Computed example of a mutant assay.
Amino acid sequence: MKVYSIICLISVAFSLHEVVAYKEITGILDNAKDLTPEEINALRPLFNDLQSQYDYIVSMGTDDTNMEELYDATFNEYFASFFESDGETMGYDTSLPTVEELIGESTYFSTLEEQKEMSDLQSILEDTLEEAQTSIDELVKRAITIESQLLKLNKPKIVTYIYKALGVVFKVAVRVSRAAYCTYSHIPQLNTSLHNIYDGIDCYSYTSKLILKVQTQTVNTVLTIRKNVYNLADVYRKVAGKQSLVGKITTIILNVFKILRNIREAYTTATHAMDALQNELPDAALKSVNCGKDFAATIPDTIATVTELTTCIAFVDDSKEDYDFMKPVNQTRINRDIKRK
């Protein structure tokens, strides 16, 4: 009966405060433009509960607990594993050496014919480098485009939004001693609940794998092109080591064209791979939509944890020790499962 009375008092307090409360929590979800309607609908009850909790904590006033540093350290420690990826496209190194960097200091040739052939050789090297650079730039540009499209579909953002909402609640809670104690002690349970949600959106790993394919293909192709470019230096050195370039230009051209052919083949292969990945985007989009339905079943457990946290914050009789919110998380889950049956 006491727990029921407490919940009733909480409801009254929430109703009184609702008149002046801004939608600090539910507003986060209202502005979640990158979530599907299914995802938003599944998250709505949780965010409503968090908003009510926020309103109640604010209505309690503040007693300056000075727990901000402890909150930040603990909160970040428990939830950092969810956000290893920053959601940004990869930064690719597209740089290539210049002709001067490839061949070093030019050898001085005495005759006009030798000087002319040297000039022709440098021109050929410059043209080859220009084509190699263009191939790399076009490939990377396409890779970033596909990555960006996939990142829009990749939705561990669901957990990010919950994390953001919890952060707003906790930053208010640390100003009130009772709320600070409860939020701090419930972080492990909330962490477990969020991991259940995270496990429930494994279907998003499909887009993650596609992103990795894009990155791997691009990096490998750039490395292949760069390797061939440095082979130009070897070709030059074999000929420049001789005292004269006369008659050697044909040999150089044949070798350079072979290298250029390798560069073009690497670029063509990568382009075909990008075409295949581009064709998988519709499937990735469909899987992303389905995820909004699949993860919904994991939300109630998080709502239950938030409810326990709310009860803890409002509870004033510390002599009682047999309430669910004071028990270890595993025991709490077992009791709830028994009740459901």
Rank of each mutant, 00 (worst) to 15 (best):
Met1Val: 08
Cys8Met: 07
Cys8Gln: 15
Ile10Pro: 00
Phe14Gly: 13
Ser15Gln: 13
His17Lys: 08
His17Gly: 12
Ala21Phe: 11
Tyr22Thr: 06
Glu24His: 06
Gly27Ile: 00
Ile28Cys: 15
Leu29Ser: 09
Ala32Met: 08
Asp34Thr: 12
Leu35Asp: 00
Leu35Gly: 00
Ile40Ala: 08
Ile40Lys: 06
Leu43Trp: 01
Arg44Tyr: 05
Leu46Ser: 00
Gln51Ala: 05
Asp55Thr: 07
Ser59Trp: 04
Thr62Pro: 05
Asp64Gln: 15
Thr65Pro: 03
Asn66Asp: 09
Met67Thr: 12
Asp72Asn: 06
Asp72Tyr: 09
Glu77Met: 12
Tyr78Ser: 03
Ser81Val: 05
Glu84Pro: 03
Ser85Met: 05
Asp86His: 02
Glu88Cys: 09
Glu88Thr: 06
Tyr92Pro: 03
Thr98Ala: 13
Thr98Glu: 11
Thr98Phe: 07
Val99Leu: 02
Glu101Ser: 03
Ile103Asn: 00
Gly104Ser: 04
Gly104Ala: 03
Thr107Lys: 09
Tyr108Arg: 02
Thr111Ala: 01
Gln115Met: 03
Asp120Val: 05
Leu121Thr: 09
Gln122Pro: 01
Ser123Thr: 14
Ile124Gly: 08
Asp127Leu: 10
Thr128Leu: 04
Glu130Gly: 09
Glu130Ser: 05
Ala132Ser: 01
Thr134Arg: 08
Ser135Pro: 04
Leu139Ala: 01
Ile144Thr: 06
Leu150Gln: 01
Lys155Glu: 00
Pro156Val: 04
Lys157Trp: 07
Tyr163Gly: 09
Lys164Val: 08
Val169Ala: 10
Phe170His: 10
Val172Thr: 12
Ala173Cys: 02
Val174Leu: 11
Arg178Phe: 06
Cys182Val: 13
Thr183Tyr: 15
Thr192Met: 14
Ser193Asn: 15
Leu194Glu: 02
His195Met: 14
Asn196Asp: 15
Tyr198Pro: 01
Tyr198Met: 12
Asp199Ile: 15
Asp202Pro: 06
Cys203Phe: 12
Tyr204Glu: 02
Ser205Tyr: 10
Tyr206Ala: 06
Ser208Met: 02
Ser208Pro: 07
Leu212Lys: 10
Gln217Leu: 02
Val219Asn: 09
Val219Cys: 03
Asn220Leu: 12
Val222Asn: 04
Val222Lys: 01
Leu223Asn: 07
Thr224Trp: 07
Leu232Pro: 01
Ala233Ile: 14
Ala233Thr: 09
Asp234Ala: 12
Val235Arg: 00
Tyr236Gly: 04
Arg237Cys: 14
Val246Glu: 15
Lys248Phe: 10
Ile252Asn: 03
Ile253Cys: 07
Ile253Gly: 01
Leu254Cys: 15
Asn255Met: 08
Asn262Phe: 11
Arg264Trp: 10
Arg264Thr: 05
Thr268His: 07
His272Glu: 12
Met274Pro: 02
Ala276Ile: 07
Leu277Met: 03
Glu280Thr: 04
Leu281Met: 11
Pro282Leu: 05
Ala285Met: 10
Cys291Glu: 06
Cys291Gly: 05
Cys291Tyr: 07
Lys293Cys: 05
Lys293Arg: 13
Thr298His: 07
Asp301Asn: 05
Val306Trp: 01
Leu309Thr: 06
Cys312Ser: 11
Ile313Pro: 00
Ala314Gln: 01
Asp317Val: 07
Asp317Cys: 04
Asp318Ser: 10
Asp324Thr: 03
Asp324Val: 14
Lys327Tyr: 11
Asp337Asn: 12
Arg340Ala: 14
Lys341Phe: 14
